[in-house]
Every structure is written in C-alpha cells, then in structure tokens.
Design a protein around this nucleic acid. Structure first.
Length: 422
DNA sequence: TCTGGGGTCCTAGGACCC
DNA sequence: TCTGGGGTCCTAGGACCC
C-alpha cells in the first residue's frame, strides 16, 4: 500500500507555524518578485482569491479584507519540508519526496489498520511542525492521489485520512472524481477526454487501452492501469536531480547585453553551486531569453540554445564561460527582455567523470571550487563571486513582505518573552 | 507599472552509422 | 527499370506536475 502525504496550503502553513496569531485568518504567499499568489489559506480561498492571481490586481481586496500577505521565504519552506520528510523517514524506509510539500510512502507490511497508521503520521507531523496534512492511502500511487483528494475535500468526515481498500470504494471514489482533477490529466487531455464523453476518473478507466495509448501515449496508459488498481507507477527514491535550473523574471525589462551577461553569469553561478551540492557534474547547458509575454504590442522574442560542453564539469568558471557563449548566440539587440535562465542538463555523478582525450578541466578548478563553497557557506551569501557578476548586486527581487528565517538564521530565531522576569 | 520557478517524461523528426 | 533494414543520438517541443 502507498500513502501520499500532502501538506495543506504548505507555504501558508509554514508562515503560520511561527505566527499562531494568523490561525483562522486569510493568509497568502506570493511568488518571487511578489508577482502572483502561490499559496492560500482556506480563509483566503473563501474570499475568492484564485491560485496564481496577479498580486497587483488583488491589492484592494488584500487591504479591504485584511489578508496577511507574505513574500516567498524559500529558506524557511525548504527547512520545514526537510523536517516533515525526516518524520516520514521514521515511519517507513521507503519514501519518495515528490515535491516540496508532498511525499509518497510505501507502508510497511506488518502494520494493522491503514487508517490508524495514517492518522498517526498526520498527528506526529502536526505535533512536531504545526503543519496540517491530508493523507490518501491505496494500493497504487494514482489511487492514493485520488484518495488524498477525498481526504482534503471531506476533512471533517475523514479526519484528513482516506483509504481505498476495497473494489467498491475504488469505483465509488473514481466515479466521484472529475476527470480534470486526476493526477496526470492536464488541460489538453481533459478537453480531449470530455469531447469523448469521459466525465469522471471512472469513465477514463473504462476506455479502450489502444485508444488511450494512441492519444495519450504510454504515460496515459500507465495512469489508466494504476487507476484500475494494477500497480504500474513505481516508487522512485532517487534523490539526485536530472536537471538543475535557475531562472528569473526581472523587475524591469532591459535590452543591453551587459546587463544580461551579468545575470546569466549569476544564474550559471547559482546552478553550479546547486550542482556541486548534489555531487554531480553536467555535460550540457541551456540558456534562454524571453521578452514580456504579457505586454501586448511589444516585439516578442524567445531565444534558447543548448551547448554541449567539451567535458563533464562542476566548475563555476567553465559553466559561466559557456553560458555566456550561449547567450552571445541568442542575444538580439532591440528586444525588451523580461525573463532569462540557465539550465544544466546531462547530469552525472561528479566522481565518475569520463576524461576527454584532448581537452579536460583545469585541475586547479576543483580545489578552487571547494574553497569558494566553503567561504560562501561560512560567511553567508555570495562573498566570493566571479568578476563578470555585479559585485555590488544592485538588482534584487521584490520582497516587500518577507518573514524572518526562523529556522535557518541565528539572528532571526524566535524570541520567547517570559512574563515573570524574576 | 506590476503576471513565478523548478522539475519530469515522452515523441517526432533529422542526421548519422553500418 | 530496379534502390534495405536496423539501429543510435540529438534536438525541439509538448504535456504534465507542484
């Protein structure tokens, strides 16, 4: 049996964990640059704030309804996520961290009572972190996801834990589930299925295998089998990422090459650091530029380029050098650029590097990177940069509502005021 | 004025190999 | 006049997830 543990309104719950005064009040968390809403408390949902709502369009509503607004605080959410996941590790040796706020857990065979086991997990997480969760349990991952949806929708009835453990329950739950709410069915497939008369997840499981394979590829067929109760999607405990990206929208648009070069350098620098953190090296990198797609009438441009590196590397110096090379190829003057990014691909373990016959990394880079990472870790932030980055870092993200880094910075640690000073 | 960021998996088609 | 068959690798792009 699989359980999927999903944290409710995760970012909002993290903020509330250190601000109990915000319980039962409308709270939202915004994306980077305070762009749009990415997490909402139940109270905020009730006010009619949709997911991904642009913040500037809801400013009045926020003020009038006393919505508490936060900028995203990823060091806090990342740390809280690690805590939740380590609690799950104590319940089962097989845990797949699916996203920052979700994990699949293969339940140990010798437990008695799936429901009570789920409730135990839920209450432990809540006791240790103050994060509310919903849990779905079933014999396949896709069905566990469906069960999770039920647990979330009928919080009161289910106690936040729902188990599909019989054929009757499986069919009943699938008949209740609208097709567009099924994990793996996005807008495109949803429309095609609706045109074919498929309204619920159950209708989908009744379709012909060949049809599903033809129009929804092997991915769709696997999903169908999983929903039929035939385990097809396996637990994936692999930790290392297969791609690492740093991408940003800019606060303003700009057109000059110098500015872009500086940012691409910084993105590449950040990617290389993440790469070394998971002890990988990369063999390809991708750089892209975008104009502002929301601006009507503006000259639109999307440019991107993949570069194959001459050797696998985790050196910031090499990665930045080739990222700028790619940038030169795609840069077009006269475009108002709004977004850019660097993605590292072709990742492999850093210690199984295949040497090239003719061209290899300068052996001095490895010790240099080690020292650089150490200094940056010790002194915080980016104390060591490379020269084509902006040394003053004049640009920054818009974060007007940032909460403290309660769990990862000593100066931000919570204070406890004792009434009795004696 | 202001609209996020970071991932995974699959397929088609072209270039190339013997 | 007639012109095979079986592969690999790479790239671009789509669809989906949270």
């Amino acid at each position: 049996m699989y359980a999927i543990i999903d944290c409710n309104s995760f970012y909002v719950s993290c903020e509330r964990s250190f601000r109990p005064d915000l319980r039962n009040k409308p709270v939202v968390v915004l994306s980077n640059n305070d762009g749009c809403v990415v997490s909402r408390s139940a109270e905020a949902k009730k006010l009619g704030i949709p997911m991904a709502a642009p913040a500037f369009k809801y400013k009045d509503l926020f003020e009038n309804s006393k919505v508490h607004v936060f900028s995203s605080n990823y060091s806090l959410y990342g740390d809280m996520s690690t805590r939740v996941m380590s609690i799950l590790d104590s319940f089962s040796p097989e845990v797949e961290v699916y996203s920052i706020d979700e994990a699949f857990v293969k339940l140990p065979k010798q437990i008695n009572g799936f429901k009570s086991f789920g409730i135990k997990i839920k209450s432990t997480i809540f006791q240790y972190t103050d994060i509310p969760t919903s849990i779905g349990i079933a014999n396949t991952k896709a069905l566990a996801k469906v069960a999770n949806h039920v647990a979330k929708k009928f919080q009161d009835k289910t106690g936040g834990v729902y188990v599909i453990d019989s054929e009757e329950k499986r069919i009943k739950t699938l008949q209740w589930t609208a097709i567009n709410r099924v994990w793996g069915i996005g807008a495109g497939n949803s429309k095609r299925l609706k045109d074919k008369g498929v309204k619920t997840a159950y209708d989908f499981t009744m379709l012909d295998d060949d049809w599903v394979q033809k129009y929804m590829t092997i991915t769709g067929l696997r999903l169908k089998k999983d929903l039929c109760g035939e385990p097809t999607l396996a637990l994936d405990e692999l930790k290392n990422k297969k791609a690492i990206a740093t991408t940003r929208s800019f606060e303003y648009t700009f057109s000059d090459f110098e500015n872009l070069r500086e940012r691409i350098s910084t993105f590449a620098y950040s990617c290389a650091e993440k790469l070394r953190k998971q002890r990988s090296s990369c063999i390809m990198l991708y750089v892209f530029l975008r104009s502002n797609k929301h601006k009507k009438g503006a000259l639109q441009y999307r440019g991107g380029k993949v570069i194959n590196l001459p050797f696998a590397t985790d050196s910031t110096l090499v990665i930045v050098k080739y990222a700028i090379k790619a940038l030169k190829d795609i840069y077009k003057p006269g475009i108002a650029y709004k977004r850019a990014g660097v993605v590292l691909m072709g990742l492999r373990a850093a210690d199984t590097k295949q040497l090239d016959l003719f061209e290899n990394e300068n052996p001095k880079h490895k010790p240099l990177m080690k020292v650089m990472d150490k200094l940056n870790e010790k002194f915080g932030g980016y104390k060591i940069k490379i020269a084509n980055q902006d040394l003053d870092r004049t640009w920054k993200m818009k974060q007007e509502h940032l909460s403290p880094q309660y769990t990862s910075k000593f100066t931000d640690i919570i204070q406890v005021n004792c009434k009795d000073e004696s």
